[in-house]
Amino acid sequence: MPEGHSVHRIARQFASNFVGKPVAASSPQGRFAEGAALLDGRTVESVHAVGKQMFLEAEGALWLRVHLGLYGAWDFSGEILVDPTIASANGRMGQTNQRGTDLSEQTAILDDAGENSLSSIGAPRRTRVHVRMSEATKGLADDGAEWPPPVVGQVRLRLLTDTTCADLRGPTACVLQTTDEMLATVAKLGPDPLVGDAGEGEERFVAAVRRRGVPIALLLMDQAVVSGIGNVYRAELLFRARLNPHTPGRDVPEATVRALWRDWVRLLAIGVETGQMMTMDDLTPEQYRAAMAHRDDRHWVYHRAGLPCRICGTDIVLEEIGARKLYWCPRCQA
């Protein structure tokens, strides 16, 4: 399932290419035909991400809410102006990782693990491309031979401007809402570091965690407690905090809860910038490039069941909690 960084990147892609433009909307699959008919011809006025959900505002106070879920994806094609706040396809990021590794002069970094890769999104330029944006797909080349592009597979919703096409496939939710309905949906979501005041978000997060007797591993995945955290970030945040995932929220020291939030602020920003859930620290430039290219080199514990902990050598444990996989080190997080 796409985690928060992916949805924010998708929202920024829409902001760059659709805001201020009228869209032709259709439902090739037919399952969103009535909604598409209501959207058709309206101008996109704004787009926002909150956690794992995106809200696109069309003229007339009509909101499209999309939750990609486990299998959803947006495919962008045509002439795409890429948001300048996210990493470039040629690897010239001009930023640093968590602990200061300067990558401004690095060459291309490509991902072979199936996440959104640096090749998916380029520097601010116009180009004929085809980009799939979901948690488990990479950008694909487009020869630009036909416009609009032919519909391939089960497309729930197609949004089309004169130059750019966005196809939505397999979402968990694709619904139209009034402004009041959209605000009610957002009100049920936990704080997102990139939405509103981060300090206020921290206070909401701390209060929600420390009044519950639920294991912290479940609270981090509860979108009413905090928005955007999924399986990968959950495991990595807990390891980075050296926190036992079964600790009840009310028993986690307040200082540790605040540190979790602040680490989420930092990791989410890196994920939005690079398109990767990079959670390793203190890497050399060579190690960072390897981690950006290969998921196995990017995480402390996630997807490392049975492998030695990178810190203590104890085998990483895999268990199921809340019907989701949890990876953790029973020694470092004892």
Results as ranks from 00 to 15, higher is better:
Ala255Glu: 09
Leu260His: 07
Gln276Pro: 05
Ala269Trp: 06
Gly249Gln: 02
Leu268Thr: 00
Met280Gly: 04
Arg289Asn: 12
Met280Tyr: 07
Val265Glu: 15
Leu267Met: 14
Arg258Phe: 01
Leu268Asp: 01
Leu283Thr: 07
Met292Lys: 06
Thr256Ser: 14
Val257Asp: 00
Val265Ile: 12
Met277Ile: 07
Ala269Met: 01
Ala290Val: 09
Gln276Met: 13
Met277Phe: 07
Ala291Ser: 14
Asp281Gln: 14
Ala290Thr: 11
Thr284Leu: 13
Pro285Gln: 13
Gly271His: 04
Pro253Cys: 04
Tyr288Arg: 11
Asp251Ser: 11
Arg250Thr: 00
Pro248Ala: 02
Glu273Ser: 08
Ala255Gly: 02
Met277Asn: 14
Leu260Gln: 10
Asp251Tyr: 00
Gln276Glu: 12
Trp261Asp: 05
Asp251Gln: 06
Ala290Pro: 08
Val252Lys: 05
Pro253Trp: 05
Leu268Gln: 10
Pro285Asn: 15
Ala291Glu: 13
Arg262Pro: 04
Trp261Gly: 07
Gly249Val: 11
Gln276Phe: 11
Ala269Phe: 06
Leu267Gly: 05
Gly271Asp: 06
Arg250Tyr: 00
Trp264Cys: 02
Glu286Tyr: 04
Arg289Leu: 13
Leu268Lys: 12
Val272Trp: 03
Ala291Cys: 10
Pro253Gly: 01
Val257Lys: 01
Leu267Thr: 10
Thr279Ala: 15
Arg258Ile: 05
Gly249Asn: 03
Glu273Phe: 14
Glu273Leu: 15
Met292His: 09
Met292Asn: 14
Val265His: 05
Ala269Gly: 11
Thr284Asp: 08
Ala291Phe: 06
Ala290Gly: 14
Thr256Pro: 11
Met280Pro: 02
Leu268Glu: 08
Ala269Thr: 14
Met292Leu: 15
Ile270Trp: 09
Gly271Ser: 06
